[in-house]
C-alpha cells in the first residue's frame, strides 16, 4: 500500500513536470522578448530534468526506465493534471500558468522536503532550490503586467487568470492514497497544499490590479490524475515521441 501510494505520488508529479517542461520549451525562439525565450527555456530544462529525476526514483521502485516511461505511454496512462497539457496560447496564458503552477509546485516540494520518505525528501530539497527562481520570475512578471496602466495588458492578464483558474484547481485533485500518504508522513496532501497555495497566490495578486475569482464557486477541471485528459495531450505526446518511436530499442 505504501509503495503504491508513493508511486502514484511520484508519477503525477513527474508527469506534470515533463508535460509543462515540454510546453514551456515551445517558447524557445518565439518569446515576446529574447530574455523570455531564454527564461522559459531555462525553466523548461529544470522541469524536464526534475521529471527525469522522479522517473529515476520510480525505476528504483521497480518501474521501467525513464525513457520508456516518458516516451512510450499514451495519454490515458499519464497522471498529469489537465492544466499542464493546455497549449501555450499567448504569453499572458503561459505566464499565468507558470505563476499558478510553480507557486503550487514550490509549496509542494517544500512540504516534500520534510517527507518521511528520505529519497524524495532529498530530491525535493534540491528541486525546491530551483523552483525558488521560477516563482521569483513569475512573481516579478505578474506584479509588473498585473499592475500596468496599459489596459490591453491588464485585460489580457485578467482574462488569462480567469481561464486558468479552474484548471489550476485541478492540480489539487485528490488521489486514491491521500490518507495513507498523510498517515505515513510522506506528503501532507492536496487539500492542505491547496490552502497554502491560495494564500500564497492571493498575497502576490494583492499587489496587482488582478482579481482572483471566488474559488468556492468554480468547479475544478478534474480527471487528469486518473488519465482523463483534454484533446491536447495525445498530440503533444505524438510529437514528443515521434523520433523515439522510429525505433524505441535504438540508441539515439
Amino acid at each position: 500500500m505504501k509503495e503504491l501510494a508513493i508511486k502514484e505520488l511520484l508519477y503525477k508529479m513527474a508527469d506534470d513536470l515533463l508535460i509543462l517542461g515540454h510546453r514551456n520549451s515551445e517558447w524557445t525562439g518565439i518569446g515576446p522578448i529574447l530574455e523570455e525565450d531564454i527564461a522559459f527555456s531555462s525553466m523548461a530544462q529544470d522541469k524536464v530534468g526534475q521529471s527525469w529525476a522522479l522517473y529515476k526514483m520510480l525505476q528504483v521502485l521497480g518501474e521501467q526506465e525513464p525513457d520508456t516511461v516518458a516516451f512510450t505511454r499514451n495519454a490515458p496512462q499519464f497522471h498529469s493534471c489537465k492544466f499542464v497539457e493546455l497549449p501555450i496560447g499567448e504569453y499572458d496564458f503561459s505566464l499565468v500558468r507558470h505563476f499558478l503552477f510553480d507557486t503550487a509546485d514550490l509549496l509542494r516540494f517544500d512540504l516534500l522536503s520534510r517527507s518521511s520518505y528520505t529519497p524524495l525528501a532529498q530530491l525535493a530539497t534540491k528541486i525546491k532550490g530551483e523552483l525558488k527562481y521560477h516563482t521569483m520570475h513569475a512573481n516579478t512578471w505578474i506584479k509588473q503586467l498585473g499592475s500596468v496602466e496599459d489596459e490591453e495588458a491588464f485585460q489580457r492578464m485578467q482574462y488569462a487568470l480567469d481561464v486558468a483558474l479552474p484548471f489550476a484547481l485541478g492540480i489539487f485533485e485528490e488521489g486514491p492514497y491521500e490518507q495513507s500518504l498523510a498517515d505515513e508522513k510522506i506528503f501532507a496532501g492536496e487539500v492542505h497544499l491547496k490552502s497554502l497555495w491560495l494564500e500564497k497566490i492571493q498575497e502576490t495578486l494583492s499587489k496587482t490590479r488582478l482579481v482572483l475569482g471566488d474559488v468556492s464557486l468554480i468547479s475544478p477541471e478534474l480527471g487528469g490524475r486518473y488519465g482523463q485528459h483534454t484533446e491536447f495531450l495525445q498530440p503533444l505526446l505524438d510529437e514528443m515521441t515521434e523520433v523515439f518511436k522510429v525505433d524505441p530499442t535504438a540508441e539515439w
Binding site: G29, I30, G31, P32, I33, E36, E90, Y91, Q144, L145, V148, D150, E152, A153, R156
Partner: peptide, 11 residues
Amino acid sequence: AEERGAWVRKA
C-alpha cells in the same frame, strides 16, 4: 512572434 509579443513590450 514580434506581433504576438508586441503587447508585452508596449506594456
